[in-house]
Amino acid sequence: MRIARFVVDSDPLYGVVEDDKVHVLAGDPFFQGIKTTGVSHELDDVRLVAPIIPRSKVVGFGRTYREHAAELGNEVPTEPLMFLKPNTSVVGHGDPITLPAFSDEVSFEGELAVVIGRICKDVPAEKVPEVIFGYTVANDLTARDAQRTDPQWGRAKGFDGSCPLGPWIETSPDNPDDLGIISRVNGEVRQDGSTSDLIWSVNDLVAKASEAFTLLPGDVIMTGTPAGVGLVSEGDVVEIEIEQIGTLRSVFRR
């Protein structure tokens, strides 16, 4: 099932996407369940927005793919490397993203993101599926020059617009540990990987995040990016496609 958040007139609504329609839900599915209202819209007639604005946090993981760590000259960490993005970094499918004035080296990173469905802490890996609401596509935008100079990654990873999510949440892909990830810049393929190449499984990463933080409904866990990342410039269009989920599109400006 695909759960979208969208705008028709003003206030965002949630809906179930089926074929070319979106069926409006009664309230917030994270707290009120999946209840349709009987109202539907053509998908082309609505504007998709970020499928979730995290209640508290986005937890990111870095260097979870060996080839990506190598391409940036980094060692693979012995433990998953965590960082946080504020919820003000989240934007949706198709939203224009203003490149930050403090950086001349913003890089795209296509990756699978996990959306948490209920409050949890210290979740064993085998129990992780019980706390997941679904999965979406993410672009972990990173200011590489700030990442090199700042002792912590808050500015490099957390600037406004640095966390595009969308186009919707897929609640039940066949196997989150075997999903193809393709990133295109202006139509040219730059990343072509799979979550099967993750050093740690998706469940292991969520479990590790839950050791450090209490996870709340709507929190997002970003699982890291495969090799092939690169810089974006004004006017570039980045499309990140994840098998069984969809394609997230972002346009960049100064």
Rank of each mutant, 00 (worst) to 15 (best):
K157Y: 12
N87Y: 07
V59T: 14
G235S: 04
T149M: 11
A207E: 14
S107P: 00
Y14M: 10
L81N: 11
S194R: 11
G33D: 13
V46T: 07
K57F: 05
K85Q: 03
F30R: 01
S162H: 09
A227K: 10
D150C: 02
P167H: 02
E111P: 07
D204K: 13
G193V: 04
L25V: 14
V251D: 01
V137Y: 07
L81S: 15
E71H: 05
P226T: 11
S196K: 13
S10D: 12
K85L: 03
L248E: 00
E18D: 07
A212E: 12
L81P: 00
N139S: 10
Q32S: 11
T88Y: 10
E75K: 15
G15Q: 14
L99F: 07
G218P: 10
P151Y: 11
T149F: 02
N87I: 07
T195Y: 06
R5D: 06
F252A: 08
R254S: 06
V16Q: 13
K85P: 15
E75G: 14
Q147S: 07
V237A: 11
V202F: 11
G158A: 06
W200G: 02
V17T: 10
S194L: 01
A212G: 09
D160M: 00
F252M: 05
N87D: 09
A143R: 03
G60M: 11
T64Y: 00
T171E: 04
W168G: 01
D45P: 05
I182E: 09
H93K: 02
C163Y: 11
G15N: 04
T142D: 05
P29V: 10
S103E: 09
S194Q: 05
A143G: 12
E170Q: 13
V123W: 01
R249E: 11
G218R: 12
V17H: 08
E42N: 09
S103D: 07
G235Q: 01
R5P: 12
F252H: 00
V106R: 00
F102D: 12
L13Q: 13
L112W: 14
G166C: 10
G134K: 08
R253L: 07
S162N: 10
D11Y: 08
S196C: 07
T171P: 00
E130R: 10
I52R: 07
A146P: 01
V238D: 00
Q191I: 06
L179W: 08
T142N: 06
F30I: 01
